[in-house]
């Protein structure tokens, strides 16, 4: 079952899954951020480490949905050459592209 399907299934039962449960899935999310391109590895894993925990539940869900996109499309999003039509996904892409304050 894909991450998205797993989350949807649990959502449909009315189960509250974020906060502690998302942490349980953290290693799985980390592995989903391993992609076929270095560019995506750096951006997605970096975002997961630095920002995922402070996202709202809606944003966390959008990030998980984003991980189901094919690598070539993800790269276009990440380099700002394409913008997702789904506003929730577009918002999370904007956050991934925003540098972390050092």
């Amino acid at each position: 079952m894909s991450l998205r399907a797993a989350f949807s299934a649990r959502e449909s039962t009315g189960e509250i899954l974020f906060e502690s449960e998302s942490m349980l899935d953290r290693p799985r999310l980390y592995w989903q951020c391993r992609r076929g391109m270095l560019e995506l590895d750096i951006l997605l894993q970096g975002f997961l480490d630095a920002k995922f925990d402070v996202l709202t539940t809606v944003e966390q869900h959008a990030f998980i949905e984003l991980l189901d996109y094919p690598d070539a499309i993800l790269l276009e999003y990440m380099l700002g050459r394409m913008i997702p039509t789904d506003q929730r996904i577009a918002n999370v892409v904007t956050q991934i592209r925003t540098p972390v304050a050092s």
């Binding site: 592995w31 391993r34 992609r35 076929g36 391109m37 270095l38 094919p70 690598d71 070539a72």
Partner: peptide
Amino acid sequence: KVFPTRSHTVA
């Protein structure tokens, strides 16, 4: 070890 279409050939 990863989902097949995430293999490095994609790059």
